[in-house]
Amino acid sequence: MSLTRVHNLSVSLDGFATGEPQSLEAPFGHAGERLHEWMFATCFWGEGGATGVDDAIARRHEEGIGAEIMGANKFGPPGWHDDPDWKGWWGPNPPFHTPTFVLTHRPHDPIEMEGGTTFHFLDATPAEALEKARAAAGGKDVRIGGGATVVRDFVAAGLVDHLHLVQVPIVLGRGVRLWDGLAALEVDYTIEAVSTPSGVTHLTFDRRPTA
């Protein structure tokens, strides 16, 4: 069976994966881009970036993915449902290149984009959404793309096989926390930590095999 994976999810020292409030002008609220500066500096993000450990780990985001699931707040800012022209943050050729399932309580027709991305909109539980994404993934893995609330819900439901977090040495104080309700997460996962010269620590959680 395909795996369910999370990659490159950056969190602050106090556990926030985004700031507040989110808006069209500030997709990550008061956090700005501080959580993602480590990634912007890599070759994975753009030509001329650095190679090295951050780059090598970031690139795992792309490997073997056949579908993505994301939350409504990753797809757009508050109010995007009421804008008939809104097609996501990423322009005509989004970086997903797979069927991409957006979790929302408001129905919306699918949006077909360039490069193989089609956005499908679901009002579904994590398990129901994962079933649809797996069917569309063609035997490949499913990536849970965020934001933090969606990742937290999938982890809490026991549906995530591989979780890659990047702990960034900043304190945000407020926003959306990843860890709430996930007490004793370490019981179900083996954990590896790798610190890099950029100052971040890559934490990978791999689900322990069941007996």
Rank of each mutant, 00 (worst) to 15 (best):
P92Y: 14
G147F: 01
M39L: 15
D109N: 12
D85C: 05
K132A: 15
A133G: 06
D83Q: 11
A127W: 04
E62C: 08
G64C: 08
F75G: 01
G145F: 13
R143S: 09
R60A: 13
W45D: 10
T125G: 03
G32E: 14
A72Q: 08
E62V: 13
G115I: 01
L122W: 12
E114D: 07
A72D: 13
G116I: 03
A129T: 09
E33G: 15
G115Q: 08
N73Y: 06
F119T: 11
G88Y: 06
W45N: 15
G66N: 02
V142Y: 06
W90V: 05
G139D: 01
G116F: 05
W38E: 10
T51V: 07
T104S: 07
A135M: 09
T42S: 05
L103E: 04
A148Q: 05
R59S: 02
K132T: 13
L130P: 07
F121S: 00
W90I: 05
D83P: 08
D85R: 14
V102N: 06
H61F: 11
R134A: 01
H30K: 10
F101H: 09
A129E: 08
H81Y: 01
A56E: 04
I65C: 03
R59H: 06
K140T: 03
I144F: 08
M113D: 03
I69E: 02
T98P: 04
P126R: 08
G52Q: 09
G145R: 12
H120K: 07
A124V: 07
W89E: 03
L122S: 14
A127L: 10
A133E: 06
G48V: 02
R34W: 01
E33M: 15
P107D: 14
G91S: 11
T117Q: 03
G49M: 12
N73E: 07
C43H: 10
W38P: 11
W86H: 09
T117D: 00
G147D: 04
H120Q: 10
E63V: 12
D54N: 12
R106Y: 00
H30S: 08
L35K: 14
F119K: 01
L103Q: 06
H61W: 11
E131N: 03
T42Y: 00
M70I: 09
